[in-house]
């Protein structure tokens, strides 16, 4: 992101309270042109709320946000001209056809009919939706619905796309197609903010924010976040994985031993020191195992480690 360009999305100390909880608690961040900015976190972390605040469909309790320089809180209707929002729940009309939905949103955004007609064809074909133009939206598969949602969101060429868990429950093949489209949009200069509950999917974002209990805990590129991962991870494969886990879980320097099918996922502070210890303990207990191998941390490992670290050092 070039610092010279003004941010396309900027949130300053956004706060949204619901009875008893801070859904969003002083979140500040900015997203520049050409970024795919990911919000990751469990359900209820505040991802949906912050996207709704940015989309201007819910006013914040305090703080401010701008979309392409326009204040969303003060002038939501003007900001809405530059953005497109895809709610988590399919927001299109299931009793309208693909074509009718697209035309409806073109009209709502006042896209001139001649321009609209020029855009519909290429959009449909590049999304692989051309054969389904006359199908009712309700009869599309999950993946196709999301593509239709994206087509409707793109018909007025927005500068900012706000996507709330667009791939949840969508089959992996469609998910890949969807991400290809997002990357091509990024090429065209669209700024994308996307939330996802799939931690492994988060790695596809150019920048990532870990959201936890309404707070943006960490925010950086996936690679740099990964570099923040404290300690090392090992995999120990064994036909008696359960016994392996029991034997090593309470050894010093081991912060986690997770049983995963036929292997144990072990978090250690120092692999050079701990591997020989693990091997010794398992050999003494006569548990068959394959030599421990270093494992790449998953996003979940990372998320947990970072949250744990945050808790211990306030």
């Amino acid at each position: 992101m070039s610092p010279a360009l003004p941010p396309r999305i900027e949130a300053r100390k956004l706060v949204k309270r619901f009875p008893g909880v801070f859904a969003v608690n002083e979140m500040s961040f900015s997203v520049g042109e050409g970024e795919i900015f990911g919000l990751v976190g469990p359900d209820g972390a505040g991802k949906t709320t912050v996207i709704r605040l940015l989309a201007g469909v819910m006013p914040p309790d305090s703080g401010s946000a701008t979309i392409d320089g326009v204040d969303v809180v003060a002038d939501p209707e003007r900001a809405k001209q530059f953005l497109s929002y895809m709610p988590q729940r399919f927001g299109l009309y299931e009793d309208l056809t693909v074509d009718e939905n697209i035309r409806f949103y073109a009209d709502i955004f006042e896209v001139a009919p001649s321009i609209r007609d020029q855009r519909i064809g290429p959009l449909l074909s590049s999304f692989g939706m051309a054969p389904f133009q006359r199908r009712l939206a309700g009869q599309l598969s999950g993946g196709m619905k999301q593509k239709l949602g994206l087509i409707c969101a793109l018909i007025h060429t927005p500068r900012v796309l706000l996507l709330d868990e667009p791939t949840t429950g969508v089959d992996p093949v469609s998910r890949r197609d969807f991400w290809k489209i997002l990357y091509s949009l990024r090429e065209q200069g669209v700024t994308i903010l996307i939330s996802t509950a799939y931690l492994e999917e988060a790695e596809r974002c150019t920048r990532l924010a870990l959201v936890h209990q309404g707070v943006m805990a960490y925010c950086d590129t996936p690679a740099r976040l990964r570099a923040m991962m404290p300690g090392k991870l090992l995999n120990v494969v064994s036909s008696q994985a359960r016994d392996v886990q029991k034997a090593i879980a309470s050894l010093p320097g081991i912060s986690g031993a997770l049983l995963m099918g036929d292997r144990v996922h072990v978090a250690v502070d120092d692999d050079g020191r701990r591997i020989p210890e693990i091997v010794r303990v398992l050999e003494e207990a006569h548990i068959p195992f394959e030599p421990p191998v270093p494992a790449e941390p998953t996003m979940e490992d990372l998320f947990l480690a970072l949250l744990r670290e945050r808790r211990t050092s306030p």
């Binding site: 469990p42 359900d43 509950a197 359960r242 986690g256 997770l258 049983l259 947990l304 949250l307």
Partner: peptide, 16 residues
């Protein structure tokens, strides 16, 4: 679904 990663790991410990 809808559970934070830490609870999810605890849950899987119970399942195992």
């Amino acid at each position: 679904s809808g559970v934070d990663p830490e609870s999810r790991r605890r849950f899987w410990d119970l399942i195992h």
